[in-house]
Simulated scan of single mutants.
Amino acid sequence: MDDFDLSPELLATLPPVLRAVVRALGYGRAQEWLRQWGGLLINLPKHHTRALGLTDDELQRLRAELAPHLDSNDRFSVPKIDKLWIKHRNSLINANKDWQSASHQARAYHLTVRQITNIRREGECDDRQMSLFD
C-alpha cells in the first residue's frame, strides 16, 4: 500500500465510495488515481487492463472494496478528489493549530485567516461531539 495512509478517524468521515478507493489504493496512490479519473462514470473491469492505470493487484483490491457500490454493469461514479483534499487539509490544520499561527496556516494552505479560524472552530465542535460518545 502506501507509506502515508489516513487515520481511521479521518477515513471514517469520507463518503463511502471515496473511503473504498483510499482503502484499496492507499492515500497517495488514491490521490494520484482520483486526480486522473475523478468525476467520471467508469466501468471497473474484472481482468487487468492498462486502460485505468491500475496494476492487477490494485484492480482486484479496488473491485473488492467497491463491490457494494458497483451497478449491474460494474460501473461506478469516481468521486472527485476535492473531498479527500479538504478533509485531509482540515485535519492537518487542526492537528497543528497549537504550534502554527492562523496567519502561517493561511499562507501555507492558500486560505484566509477567517477560513482557518472556521476550520479550527469546526474541529473543536467535532472533538466535543466525539467526547460525548466516548
Rank of each mutant, 00 (worst) to 15 (best):
D82G: 06
F4Q: 13
W85N: 12
A67R: 14
I42Q: 14
R35M: 06
V17A: 02
D127Y: 12
S72D: 15
P15H: 07
R89S: 00
M130P: 04
D71G: 04
P45R: 13
R114P: 06
Q31W: 08
G28L: 05
Q129H: 13
S131Y: 10
A67H: 12
E65P: 02
S77A: 10
R19Q: 14
E122W: 15
D82Y: 07
I81R: 05
M1R: 01
V21R: 04
W85T: 07
S131H: 11
F4N: 11
I119Y: 01
I119W: 05
K80C: 00
G123F: 01
A30R: 05
W37V: 02
T55R: 12
G26P: 04
F4H: 10
M1T: 00
D134A: 15
S103R: 13
A106H: 09
P15T: 08
V21T: 02
K87T: 03
L18Q: 02
A24Y: 09
K83C: 06
V17M: 04
D3K: 08
L66A: 09
P15C: 03
A24C: 14
L10W: 03
W99K: 09
V113G: 08
E32C: 12
D82T: 12
N118Y: 12
W85V: 07
R61D: 06
V21K: 03
Y109C: 04
R29W: 01
R29N: 03
L11E: 08
Y109T: 02
D98S: 13
R29F: 07
W37T: 00
Q129E: 14
E65A: 10
G123D: 01
R19A: 08
R23D: 04
S77K: 13
R61V: 04
L92E: 09
R128E: 07
K46H: 10
K83N: 12
A51D: 15
D74T: 01
E122P: 01
A64T: 14
E122L: 11
A51N: 13
S103C: 10
H47G: 01
D82F: 05
A95R: 12
R107F: 07
N94W: 11
R121G: 09
I116C: 02
A24F: 09
G38P: 02
H47T: 10
A12M: 06
